[in-house]
Design a protein around this nucleic acid. Structure first.
Length: 492
RNA sequence: GGCCCGUUGGAGAAGUGGCUUAACUCACCAGCCUUUCACGCUGGCAUUCAGGGGUUCGAAUCCCCUACGGGUCACCA
Protein backbone atom coordinates (compact mmCIF):
# COMPACT_ATOMS: atom_id res chain seq x y z
CA UNK A 1 0.00 0.00 0.00
CA UNK A 2 2.29 2.68 -1.21
CA UNK A 3 -0.57 4.81 -2.48
CA UNK A 4 -2.12 7.45 -0.29
CA UNK A 5 -5.14 5.85 1.31
CA UNK A 6 -8.39 7.53 0.33
CA UNK A 7 -11.78 6.28 1.44
CA UNK A 8 -15.26 7.70 1.32
CA UNK A 9 -18.68 7.60 2.85
CA UNK A 10 -21.27 8.09 0.12
CA UNK A 11 -24.79 8.35 1.48
CA UNK A 12 -27.85 9.28 -0.51
CA UNK A 13 -29.88 12.14 0.91
CA UNK A 14 -33.03 10.14 1.44
CA UNK A 15 -33.42 10.66 5.15
CA UNK A 16 -31.58 11.09 8.36
CA UNK A 17 -28.24 9.51 9.18
CA UNK A 18 -28.92 5.91 10.05
CA UNK A 19 -26.88 4.07 12.68
CA UNK A 20 -25.76 1.64 9.98
CA UNK A 21 -24.59 4.54 7.87
CA UNK A 22 -22.89 6.09 10.85
CA UNK A 23 -20.97 2.90 11.45
CA UNK A 24 -19.91 2.73 7.80
CA UNK A 25 -18.76 6.32 8.04
CA UNK A 26 -16.92 5.51 11.25
CA UNK A 27 -15.08 2.49 9.83
CA UNK A 28 -14.03 4.55 6.83
CA UNK A 29 -12.94 7.40 9.05
CA UNK A 30 -10.96 5.15 11.40
CA UNK A 31 -9.35 3.36 8.50
CA UNK A 32 -8.36 6.61 6.84
CA UNK A 33 -6.91 8.13 9.99
CA UNK A 34 -5.15 4.91 10.91
CA UNK A 35 -3.33 4.97 7.61
CA UNK A 36 -2.84 8.71 7.53
CA UNK A 37 -5.17 8.88 4.56
CA UNK A 38 -8.11 11.00 3.49
CA UNK A 39 -11.74 10.58 4.37
CA UNK A 40 -14.21 11.92 1.85
CA UNK A 41 -17.94 12.44 2.22
CA UNK A 42 -19.76 12.38 -1.08
CA UNK A 43 -23.46 12.80 -1.67
CA UNK A 44 -25.04 10.28 -4.04
CA UNK A 45 -28.20 12.07 -5.02
CA UNK A 46 -28.87 10.63 -8.46
CA UNK A 47 -32.30 9.43 -7.46
CA UNK A 48 -34.26 12.63 -7.54
CA UNK A 49 -37.48 10.86 -6.69
CA UNK A 50 -36.13 9.78 -3.36
CA UNK A 51 -34.20 12.82 -2.43
CA UNK A 52 -35.71 14.42 0.58
CA UNK A 53 -35.73 18.13 1.21
CA UNK A 54 -33.22 19.12 3.90
CA UNK A 55 -31.91 15.57 4.11
CA UNK A 56 -28.47 16.50 2.89
CA UNK A 57 -28.09 19.23 5.48
CA UNK A 58 -29.39 16.96 8.23
CA UNK A 59 -27.05 14.20 7.16
CA UNK A 60 -24.04 16.47 7.29
CA UNK A 61 -25.15 17.91 10.60
CA UNK A 62 -25.52 14.47 12.16
CA UNK A 63 -22.21 13.34 10.78
CA UNK A 64 -20.51 16.41 12.15
CA UNK A 65 -22.04 15.86 15.58
CA UNK A 66 -21.05 12.21 15.48
CA UNK A 67 -17.47 13.26 15.03
CA UNK A 68 -16.19 11.64 11.86
CA UNK A 69 -14.39 14.67 10.54
CA UNK A 70 -13.85 14.63 6.83
CA UNK A 71 -11.09 15.98 4.67
CA UNK A 72 -13.13 16.61 1.57
CA UNK A 73 -16.81 17.06 0.89
CA UNK A 74 -19.39 19.46 -0.46
CA UNK A 75 -18.11 22.07 1.97
CA UNK A 76 -14.43 21.34 1.59
CA UNK A 77 -12.95 20.96 -1.86
CA UNK A 78 -9.97 18.71 -2.29
CA UNK A 79 -9.61 19.29 -6.01
CA UNK A 80 -11.50 16.24 -7.22
CA UNK A 81 -15.01 17.60 -6.75
CA UNK A 82 -17.80 18.36 -7.05
CA UNK A 83 -18.83 16.04 -4.24
CA UNK A 84 -22.49 15.84 -5.11
CA UNK A 85 -23.47 13.47 -7.92
CA UNK A 86 -25.99 15.86 -9.44
CA UNK A 87 -23.21 18.40 -9.85
CA UNK A 88 -21.18 15.87 -11.80
CA UNK A 89 -23.59 15.17 -14.65
CA UNK A 90 -21.24 16.52 -17.31
CA UNK A 91 -18.52 14.21 -16.11
CA UNK A 92 -20.75 11.13 -16.25
CA UNK A 93 -22.02 12.03 -19.70
CA UNK A 94 -18.55 11.97 -21.13
CA UNK A 95 -17.94 8.47 -19.81
CA UNK A 96 -21.35 7.17 -20.80
CA UNK A 97 -20.89 8.43 -24.33
CA UNK A 98 -17.55 6.72 -24.52
CA UNK A 99 -19.05 3.41 -23.52
CA UNK A 100 -21.84 3.73 -26.10
CA UNK A 101 -19.36 4.67 -28.83
CA UNK A 102 -17.28 1.64 -28.06
CA UNK A 103 -20.33 -0.59 -28.11
CA UNK A 104 -19.92 -1.48 -24.45
CA UNK A 105 -23.28 0.05 -23.69
CA UNK A 106 -26.39 0.55 -25.77
CA UNK A 107 -29.68 2.37 -25.89
CA UNK A 108 -32.67 0.48 -24.59
CA UNK A 109 -36.12 1.62 -25.63
CA UNK A 110 -38.14 -0.68 -23.41
CA UNK A 111 -40.79 1.02 -21.36
CA UNK A 112 -41.16 0.51 -17.67
CA UNK A 113 -44.39 -1.39 -18.26
CA UNK A 114 -42.69 -3.76 -20.66
CA UNK A 115 -39.86 -4.39 -18.26
CA UNK A 116 -42.16 -4.98 -15.34
CA UNK A 117 -44.25 -7.40 -17.35
CA UNK A 118 -41.11 -9.21 -18.41
CA UNK A 119 -39.90 -9.46 -14.83
CA UNK A 120 -43.22 -10.71 -13.55
CA UNK A 121 -43.38 -13.35 -16.26
CA UNK A 122 -39.91 -14.58 -15.35
CA UNK A 123 -40.73 -14.68 -11.69
CA UNK A 124 -43.88 -16.62 -12.48
CA UNK A 125 -41.73 -19.19 -14.27
CA UNK A 126 -39.36 -19.26 -11.31
CA UNK A 127 -36.56 -17.84 -13.37
CA UNK A 128 -34.06 -15.25 -12.24
CA UNK A 129 -35.70 -11.94 -13.00
CA UNK A 130 -33.32 -10.06 -15.19
CA UNK A 131 -33.24 -8.07 -18.38
CA UNK A 132 -33.65 -10.23 -21.45
CA UNK A 133 -31.28 -8.28 -23.66
CA UNK A 134 -34.08 -7.38 -26.00
CA UNK A 135 -32.53 -4.12 -27.15
CA UNK A 136 -28.99 -5.46 -27.39
CA UNK A 137 -29.04 -5.66 -31.15
CA UNK A 138 -31.72 -3.37 -32.48
CA UNK A 139 -31.93 -2.78 -36.20
CA UNK A 140 -31.68 0.89 -37.25
CA UNK A 141 -35.24 0.73 -38.57
CA UNK A 142 -36.51 -0.49 -35.25
CA UNK A 143 -34.74 2.33 -33.46
CA UNK A 144 -36.32 4.82 -35.86
CA UNK A 145 -39.69 3.26 -35.25
CA UNK A 146 -39.30 3.57 -31.49
CA UNK A 147 -38.19 7.15 -31.83
CA UNK A 148 -41.14 7.93 -34.07
CA UNK A 149 -43.34 6.52 -31.34
CA UNK A 150 -41.82 9.07 -29.05
CA UNK A 151 -40.03 6.55 -26.90
CA UNK A 152 -37.02 7.65 -24.93
CA UNK A 153 -34.07 5.44 -24.19
CA UNK A 154 -32.05 4.51 -21.21
CA UNK A 155 -28.49 3.26 -21.53
CA UNK A 156 -27.64 -0.30 -20.62
CA UNK A 157 -24.26 -1.79 -19.97
CA UNK A 158 -23.45 -4.80 -22.11
CA UNK A 159 -22.51 -7.45 -19.60
CA UNK A 160 -19.69 -9.67 -20.90
CA UNK A 161 -20.66 -13.30 -21.35
CA UNK A 162 -19.08 -16.31 -19.70
CA UNK A 163 -16.88 -14.34 -17.42
CA UNK A 164 -16.05 -14.72 -13.80
CA UNK A 165 -15.63 -11.66 -11.63
CA UNK A 166 -13.83 -11.96 -8.37
CA UNK A 167 -14.29 -9.50 -5.57
CA UNK A 168 -11.22 -9.48 -3.37
CA UNK A 169 -12.87 -8.54 -0.13
CA UNK A 170 -10.85 -7.63 2.95
CA UNK A 171 -13.51 -9.09 5.18
CA UNK A 172 -14.85 -12.00 3.16
CA UNK A 173 -11.93 -13.09 1.08
CA UNK A 174 -12.47 -13.96 -2.58
CA UNK A 175 -16.08 -13.86 -3.65
CA UNK A 176 -16.82 -15.11 -7.14
CA UNK A 177 -19.67 -14.16 -9.45
CA UNK A 178 -20.58 -15.51 -12.88
CA UNK A 179 -21.35 -12.76 -15.36
CA UNK A 180 -24.02 -14.95 -16.94
CA UNK A 181 -26.09 -14.53 -13.85
CA UNK A 182 -26.22 -10.80 -14.35
CA UNK A 183 -28.42 -9.10 -16.91
CA UNK A 184 -27.51 -5.96 -18.82
CA UNK A 185 -28.14 -3.20 -16.34
CA UNK A 186 -29.10 0.41 -16.78
CA UNK A 187 -26.29 2.87 -16.27
CA UNK A 188 -28.14 5.98 -17.33
CA UNK A 189 -31.78 6.94 -17.26
CA UNK A 190 -33.48 8.58 -20.27
CA UNK A 191 -32.74 12.02 -18.86
CA UNK A 192 -29.04 11.21 -18.78
CA UNK A 193 -28.76 10.89 -15.03
CA UNK A 194 -26.62 7.87 -14.23
CA UNK A 195 -27.61 5.13 -11.83
CA UNK A 196 -25.69 4.40 -8.69
CA UNK A 197 -23.75 1.44 -10.03
CA UNK A 198 -22.28 3.61 -12.74
CA UNK A 199 -21.80 6.88 -10.90
CA UNK A 200 -20.11 5.23 -7.97
CA UNK A 201 -17.41 3.79 -10.22
CA UNK A 202 -16.71 7.04 -11.99
CA UNK A 203 -16.67 8.95 -8.73
CA UNK A 204 -14.48 6.50 -6.86
CA UNK A 205 -12.05 6.38 -9.74
CA UNK A 206 -11.87 10.12 -10.29
CA UNK A 207 -11.64 10.77 -6.57
CA UNK A 208 -8.79 8.30 -6.35
CA UNK A 209 -10.53 6.14 -3.78
CA UNK A 210 -8.29 3.27 -2.76
CA UNK A 211 -10.59 1.33 -0.43
CA UNK A 212 -14.32 0.97 -0.59
CA UNK A 213 -15.67 0.12 2.84
CA UNK A 214 -19.44 -0.20 2.83
CA UNK A 215 -22.42 -2.29 3.88
CA UNK A 216 -22.85 -5.88 2.85
CA UNK A 217 -25.89 -5.00 0.79
CA UNK A 218 -23.46 -3.76 -1.82
CA UNK A 219 -21.54 -6.99 -2.18
CA UNK A 220 -23.80 -8.43 -4.87
CA UNK A 221 -23.54 -5.21 -6.82
CA UNK A 222 -19.79 -5.19 -6.81
CA UNK A 223 -19.33 -7.42 -9.88
CA UNK A 224 -21.35 -4.89 -11.90
CA UNK A 225 -19.01 -2.18 -10.76
CA UNK A 226 -16.02 -4.36 -11.54
CA UNK A 227 -17.29 -4.69 -15.11
CA UNK A 228 -17.39 -0.95 -15.48
CA UNK A 229 -13.90 -0.54 -14.10
CA UNK A 230 -12.82 -3.13 -16.61
CA UNK A 231 -14.65 -1.47 -19.50
CA UNK A 232 -12.72 1.74 -18.90
CA UNK A 233 -9.48 0.03 -18.09
CA UNK A 234 -9.53 1.54 -14.60
CA UNK A 235 -7.83 -0.15 -11.73
CA UNK A 236 -10.50 -1.11 -9.19
CA UNK A 237 -10.16 -0.12 -5.55
CA UNK A 238 -10.00 -2.66 -2.77
CA UNK A 239 -13.23 -3.66 -1.13
CA UNK A 240 -14.47 -4.44 2.34
CA UNK A 241 -18.11 -5.32 2.88
CA UNK A 242 -19.27 -4.98 6.45
CA UNK A 243 -22.12 -7.14 7.74
CA UNK A 244 -25.34 -5.36 8.53
CA UNK A 245 -26.68 -4.22 11.89
CA UNK A 246 -29.83 -6.09 12.90
CA UNK A 247 -32.70 -5.08 15.16
CA UNK A 248 -33.23 -6.79 18.55
CA UNK A 249 -35.27 -9.51 16.89
CA UNK A 250 -32.31 -10.45 14.77
CA UNK A 251 -34.10 -9.12 11.73
CA UNK A 252 -33.09 -6.58 9.20
CA UNK A 253 -34.06 -3.08 10.24
CA UNK A 254 -36.87 -1.48 8.33
CA UNK A 255 -37.71 2.19 8.28
CA UNK A 256 -40.80 1.71 10.39
CA UNK A 257 -39.20 -0.63 12.88
CA UNK A 258 -39.93 0.65 16.34
CA UNK A 259 -37.95 -1.94 18.26
CA UNK A 260 -34.91 0.23 17.89
CA UNK A 261 -33.99 3.87 17.59
CA UNK A 262 -32.40 4.04 14.18
CA UNK A 263 -31.18 7.55 13.58
CA UNK A 264 -28.17 9.35 14.94
CA UNK A 265 -30.18 12.52 15.35
CA UNK A 266 -32.53 10.75 17.74
CA UNK A 267 -29.67 9.58 19.91
CA UNK A 268 -28.34 13.09 19.99
CA UNK A 269 -31.73 14.47 20.99
CA UNK A 270 -32.11 11.91 23.76
CA UNK A 271 -28.84 13.05 25.21
CA UNK A 272 -26.36 10.41 24.18
CA UNK A 273 -22.80 11.63 23.93
CA UNK A 274 -21.16 11.38 20.52
CA UNK A 275 -18.03 9.76 21.93
CA UNK A 276 -20.17 7.06 23.53
CA UNK A 277 -22.04 6.35 20.32
CA UNK A 278 -18.76 6.24 18.44
CA UNK A 279 -17.16 3.89 20.93
CA UNK A 280 -20.21 1.65 20.90
CA UNK A 281 -20.60 1.57 17.14
CA UNK A 282 -16.91 0.84 16.70
CA UNK A 283 -17.34 -2.30 18.76
CA UNK A 284 -20.35 -3.37 16.75
CA UNK A 285 -18.76 -5.50 14.10
CA UNK A 286 -15.15 -4.80 15.02
CA UNK A 287 -13.19 -6.00 17.99
CA UNK A 288 -9.88 -4.82 19.34
CA UNK A 289 -7.20 -7.21 20.49
CA UNK A 290 -7.38 -5.95 24.03
CA UNK A 291 -9.83 -7.05 26.64
CA UNK A 292 -11.49 -3.76 27.29
CA UNK A 293 -14.38 -1.79 25.96
CA UNK A 294 -13.73 1.87 26.49
CA UNK A 295 -11.62 3.54 23.83
CA UNK A 296 -10.98 7.15 23.00
CA UNK A 297 -11.17 8.23 19.41
CA UNK A 298 -7.40 8.28 19.20
CA UNK A 299 -7.20 4.75 20.51
CA UNK A 300 -9.79 3.56 18.03
CA UNK A 301 -7.83 5.14 15.22
CA UNK A 302 -4.65 3.56 16.47
CA UNK A 303 -6.13 0.07 16.82
CA UNK A 304 -8.63 -0.16 13.98
CA UNK A 305 -8.02 -2.75 11.31
CA UNK A 306 -10.21 -4.35 8.68
CA UNK A 307 -8.86 -7.75 9.53
CA UNK A 308 -10.69 -7.67 12.84
CA UNK A 309 -14.05 -6.74 11.37
CA UNK A 310 -16.61 -9.50 11.85
CA UNK A 311 -18.20 -11.36 8.96
CA UNK A 312 -21.49 -11.93 10.68
CA UNK A 313 -24.24 -9.43 11.32
CA UNK A 314 -24.60 -7.87 14.77
CA UNK A 315 -27.64 -6.99 16.83
CA UNK A 316 -27.79 -3.47 18.16
CA UNK A 317 -28.03 -3.77 21.94
CA UNK A 318 -29.35 -0.61 23.54
CA UNK A 319 -28.44 -1.87 27.02
CA UNK A 320 -24.79 -1.86 26.23
CA UNK A 321 -25.00 1.55 24.60
CA UNK A 322 -26.73 2.82 27.74
CA UNK A 323 -24.05 1.38 29.95
CA UNK A 324 -21.37 2.94 27.80
CA UNK A 325 -23.11 6.29 27.59
CA UNK A 326 -23.49 6.29 31.37
CA UNK A 327 -19.78 5.65 31.63
CA UNK A 328 -19.03 8.75 29.55
CA UNK A 329 -21.64 10.81 31.37
CA UNK A 330 -20.01 9.99 34.70
CA UNK A 331 -16.67 11.17 33.38
CA UNK A 332 -17.96 14.39 31.87
CA UNK A 333 -17.97 17.70 33.74
CA UNK A 334 -21.34 18.37 35.28
CA UNK A 335 -21.72 21.57 33.26
CA UNK A 336 -21.73 19.60 30.05
CA UNK A 337 -24.35 17.17 31.29
CA UNK A 338 -26.45 20.02 32.65
CA UNK A 339 -26.38 21.64 29.22
CA UNK A 340 -27.89 18.46 27.84
CA UNK A 341 -30.40 17.90 30.64
CA UNK A 342 -31.79 21.36 31.19
CA UNK A 343 -33.54 21.62 27.81
CA UNK A 344 -35.38 18.39 28.56
CA UNK A 345 -36.47 19.74 31.93
CA UNK A 346 -37.62 22.94 30.31
CA UNK A 347 -39.57 21.06 27.71
CA UNK A 348 -41.23 19.04 30.44
CA UNK A 349 -42.24 22.23 32.21
CA UNK A 350 -39.96 21.54 35.16
CA UNK A 351 -37.84 24.59 34.59
CA UNK A 352 -38.63 28.00 33.11
CA UNK A 353 -37.47 28.77 29.58
CA UNK A 354 -35.07 31.37 30.89
CA UNK A 355 -33.03 30.52 33.96
CA UNK A 356 -31.51 33.09 36.26
CA UNK A 357 -28.24 32.31 37.93
CA UNK A 358 -29.77 30.76 41.04
CA UNK A 359 -32.11 28.62 39.03
CA UNK A 360 -29.27 27.43 36.87
CA UNK A 361 -27.16 26.60 39.91
CA UNK A 362 -30.01 24.67 41.46
CA UNK A 363 -30.71 22.78 38.21
CA UNK A 364 -27.04 21.97 37.90
CA UNK A 365 -27.05 20.46 41.36
CA UNK A 366 -30.08 18.37 40.53
CA UNK A 367 -28.27 17.10 37.46
CA UNK A 368 -25.18 16.44 39.53
CA UNK A 369 -27.27 14.40 41.94
CA UNK A 370 -28.27 12.05 39.13
CA UNK A 371 -25.17 12.23 36.96
CA UNK A 372 -23.86 8.95 38.26
CA UNK A 373 -26.89 6.99 37.21
CA UNK A 374 -28.05 8.82 34.10
CA UNK A 375 -27.94 6.66 31.02
CA UNK A 376 -28.89 9.52 28.73
CA UNK A 377 -29.89 13.11 29.35
CA UNK A 378 -33.59 12.73 28.62
CA UNK A 379 -33.92 10.43 31.60
CA UNK A 380 -33.46 13.38 33.90
CA UNK A 381 -37.09 14.48 33.75
CA UNK A 382 -38.29 11.16 35.10
CA UNK A 383 -35.62 10.90 37.75
CA UNK A 384 -36.02 14.44 38.95
CA UNK A 385 -39.80 14.61 38.78
CA UNK A 386 -40.01 14.30 42.57
CA UNK A 387 -38.72 17.87 42.80
CA UNK A 388 -41.62 19.26 40.83
CA UNK A 389 -44.68 17.46 42.08
CA UNK A 390 -47.05 19.27 44.36
CA UNK A 391 -48.56 16.16 45.87
CA UNK A 392 -46.51 13.07 46.47
CA UNK A 393 -48.18 9.87 45.35
CA UNK A 394 -47.44 6.74 47.29
CA UNK A 395 -47.57 3.41 45.52
CA UNK A 396 -48.00 0.06 47.28
CA UNK A 397 -44.34 -0.32 48.02
CA UNK A 398 -44.16 3.19 49.42
CA UNK A 399 -47.24 2.68 51.54
CA UNK A 400 -45.76 -0.47 52.97
CA UNK A 401 -42.73 1.50 54.12
CA UNK A 402 -44.88 4.23 55.64
CA UNK A 403 -47.07 1.72 57.41
CA UNK A 404 -44.34 0.76 59.84
CA UNK A 405 -45.24 1.50 63.44
CA UNK A 406 -42.25 3.73 64.09
CA UNK A 407 -43.14 6.06 61.23
CA UNK A 408 -45.32 8.57 63.12
CA UNK A 409 -42.64 9.04 65.76
CA UNK A 410 -39.93 9.45 63.17
CA UNK A 411 -42.01 11.89 61.18
CA UNK A 412 -42.89 14.01 64.17
CA UNK A 413 -39.32 14.11 65.38
CA UNK A 414 -38.04 14.99 61.95
CA UNK A 415 -40.65 17.68 61.56
CA UNK A 416 -39.60 19.14 64.87
CA UNK A 417 -35.97 19.17 63.82
CA UNK A 418 -36.74 20.71 60.45
CA UNK A 419 -38.65 23.67 61.69
CA UNK A 420 -36.06 24.50 64.29
CA UNK A 421 -33.09 24.27 61.95
CA UNK A 422 -31.30 27.59 61.66
CA UNK A 423 -29.64 26.84 58.40
CA UNK A 424 -30.93 24.40 55.82
CA UNK A 425 -27.98 22.67 54.17
CA UNK A 426 -27.04 19.07 53.41
CA UNK A 427 -24.88 19.07 56.52
CA UNK A 428 -27.50 20.43 58.87
CA UNK A 429 -30.04 17.99 57.40
CA UNK A 430 -27.65 15.22 58.21
CA UNK A 431 -27.39 16.50 61.76
CA UNK A 432 -31.16 16.72 61.98
CA UNK A 433 -31.50 13.09 60.98
CA UNK A 434 -28.93 12.12 63.57
CA UNK A 435 -30.99 13.98 66.14
CA UNK A 436 -34.07 12.08 65.01
CA UNK A 437 -32.15 8.88 65.50
CA UNK A 438 -31.31 9.87 69.05
CA UNK A 439 -34.83 10.92 69.90
CA UNK A 440 -36.63 7.95 68.37
CA UNK A 441 -34.00 5.26 68.71
CA UNK A 442 -34.60 4.34 65.08
CA UNK A 443 -31.71 3.94 62.69
CA UNK A 444 -30.74 2.51 59.33
CA UNK A 445 -33.57 1.38 57.11
CA UNK A 446 -36.16 2.10 59.80
CA UNK A 447 -35.08 5.72 59.87
CA UNK A 448 -34.03 6.56 56.36
CA UNK A 449 -36.59 4.74 54.33
CA UNK A 450 -39.63 6.45 55.86
CA UNK A 451 -37.99 9.83 55.43
CA UNK A 452 -37.05 9.04 51.84
CA UNK A 453 -40.47 7.72 50.97
CA UNK A 454 -42.40 10.42 52.75
CA UNK A 455 -40.50 13.20 51.01
CA UNK A 456 -39.99 11.70 47.58
CA UNK A 457 -42.60 8.98 47.26
CA UNK A 458 -39.83 6.65 46.18
CA UNK A 459 -38.08 3.70 47.75
CA UNK A 460 -35.07 4.25 45.54
CA UNK A 461 -33.15 7.43 45.01
CA UNK A 462 -29.95 9.32 45.39
CA UNK A 463 -28.16 10.67 48.41
CA UNK A 464 -30.87 11.62 50.88
CA UNK A 465 -29.29 14.68 52.48
CA UNK A 466 -28.61 16.26 49.12
CA UNK A 467 -32.05 15.33 47.83
CA UNK A 468 -33.75 16.95 50.83
CA UNK A 469 -31.56 19.98 50.48
CA UNK A 470 -32.45 20.47 46.83
CA UNK A 471 -36.08 19.83 47.54
CA UNK A 472 -36.10 22.82 49.87
CA UNK A 473 -37.28 23.07 53.44
CA UNK A 474 -40.85 24.10 52.58
CA UNK A 475 -41.57 21.10 50.39
CA UNK A 476 -39.94 18.72 52.83
CA UNK A 477 -41.84 20.09 55.79
CA UNK A 478 -45.17 19.98 54.03
CA UNK A 479 -44.62 16.44 52.78
CA UNK A 480 -43.63 15.25 56.21
CA UNK A 481 -46.60 17.05 57.71
CA UNK A 482 -48.82 15.38 55.16
CA UNK A 483 -47.69 11.95 56.25
CA UNK A 484 -48.24 12.83 59.89
CA UNK A 485 -51.74 14.07 59.16
CA UNK A 486 -52.73 11.17 56.97
CA UNK A 487 -50.85 8.37 58.63
CA UNK A 488 -53.96 6.30 59.29
CA UNK A 489 -55.18 6.66 55.74
CA UNK A 490 -51.84 5.85 54.16
CA UNK A 491 -51.03 3.02 56.50
CA UNK A 492 -54.33 1.19 56.30
C1' G B 1 -36.43 -19.09 -7.51
C1' G B 2 -30.85 -18.10 -9.21
C1' C B 3 -26.43 -16.14 -7.30
C1' C B 4 -23.77 -14.46 -2.96
C1' C B 5 -22.79 -13.91 2.43
C1' G B 6 -23.29 -15.60 7.30
C1' U B 7 -24.44 -19.07 11.93
C1' U B 8 -19.65 -19.30 19.25
C1' G B 9 -24.18 -17.98 25.84
C1' G B 10 -30.06 -13.33 26.11
C1' A B 11 -26.50 -9.26 23.38
C1' G B 12 -21.41 -7.51 21.53
C1' A B 13 -17.49 -10.94 20.97
C1' A B 14 -12.16 -13.55 21.62
C1' G B 15 -10.67 -17.83 19.42
C1' U B 16 -7.44 -19.31 12.55
C1' G B 17 -5.67 -27.70 14.40
C1' G B 18 -3.42 -29.24 20.72
C1' C B 19 -2.03 -23.39 25.72
C1' U B 20 -9.83 -23.72 25.73
C1' U B 21 -12.54 -28.21 31.30
C1' A B 22 -14.30 -21.48 25.18
C1' A B 23 -11.33 -14.89 27.24
C1' C B 24 -13.42 -10.15 27.94
C1' U B 25 -17.83 -6.65 28.08
C1' C B 26 -23.25 -5.64 28.50
C1' A B 27 -27.71 -7.81 30.41
C1' C B 28 -29.61 -11.13 34.09
C1' C B 29 -29.37 -13.71 39.04
C1' A B 30 -27.13 -14.20 44.04
C1' G B 31 -24.10 -12.14 47.85
C1' C B 32 -21.01 -8.17 50.02
C1' C B 33 -20.24 -2.94 51.00
C1' U B 34 -23.05 1.48 52.37
C1' U B 35 -26.89 3.66 59.50
C1' U B 36 -31.21 4.72 53.74
C1' C B 37 -30.48 4.88 48.37
C1' A B 38 -27.18 4.62 44.52
C1' C B 39 -22.20 3.74 42.90
C1' G B 40 -18.84 -0.17 43.62
C1' C B 41 -17.05 -5.13 44.59
C1' U B 42 -17.39 -10.63 44.50
C1' G B 43 -19.54 -14.91 42.52
C1' G B 44 -23.05 -17.54 39.13
C1' C B 45 -24.64 -17.76 33.96
C1' A B 46 -22.07 -22.10 26.64
C1' U B 47 -19.34 -29.72 29.37
C1' U B 48 -19.98 -26.65 24.24
C1' C B 49 -19.25 -23.62 19.38
C1' A B 50 -26.76 -24.31 14.16
C1' G B 51 -27.36 -29.91 12.99
C1' G B 52 -25.19 -34.14 10.59
C1' G B 53 -21.22 -36.50 8.20
C1' G B 54 -16.06 -36.68 7.11
C1' U B 55 -10.26 -35.43 7.38
C1' U B 56 -6.87 -35.91 11.71
C1' C B 57 -3.51 -39.00 17.12
C1' G B 58 -6.43 -34.44 18.10
C1' A B 59 -11.51 -29.57 15.28
C1' A B 60 -15.26 -24.11 17.52
C1' U B 61 -11.00 -23.90 14.22
C1' C B 62 -10.10 -27.86 7.57
C1' C B 63 -13.85 -30.34 3.82
C1' C B 64 -18.99 -31.81 2.43
C1' C B 65 -24.26 -31.85 3.12
C1' U B 66 -28.68 -30.04 5.55
C1' A B 67 -31.28 -26.31 8.31
C1' C B 68 -31.90 -21.40 9.51
C1' G B 69 -30.92 -16.04 8.91
C1' G B 70 -29.48 -12.17 5.58
C1' G B 71 -28.07 -9.63 0.91
C1' U B 72 -28.92 -9.10 -4.26
C1' C B 73 -31.25 -9.97 -8.92
C1' A B 74 -34.61 -1.68 -9.87
C1' C B 75 -34.53 3.62 -14.96
C1' C B 76 -32.86 2.70 -5.15
C1' A B 77 -28.63 3.66 -2.98
Amino acid sequence: MSKQVRVRFAPSPTGHLHIGGARSALFNYLFARHHGGDFIVRIEDTDRKRNVEEAEAKLIESLRWFGTEWDESIDKDGGVGPYRSMDRLDIYKEYIDKLVEEGKAYHCYCTEEELNAEREAMKARCETPRYSGKCRHLAPEQIEAYKAEGRTSSIRFRVPENREYIVHDHIRGEVKFESNGIGDFVIARPDGIPTYNFAVVIDDYLMKITHVIRGEEHLSNTPRQLMIYEAFGFEAPEFAHVALILNPDGKKMSKRDESLIQFVEQYRDLGYLPEALMNFLALLGWSPEEEREIFTREELIDKFSLSRVSKSPAIFDIHKLNWMNNHYIKQAPVERIAELCIPHMQKAGQLPQKLNEDQYEWAKQVVALYQEQLQYAAEITGLASLFFENEVQYDEEAKAVLSDEQVPDVMKAFHEELVTLKEYTPDTIKEALKAVQKVTGQKGKKLFMPVRVATTGLTHGRDLNQTLFLLGRDKVVSRVQNVINNYEKIAK
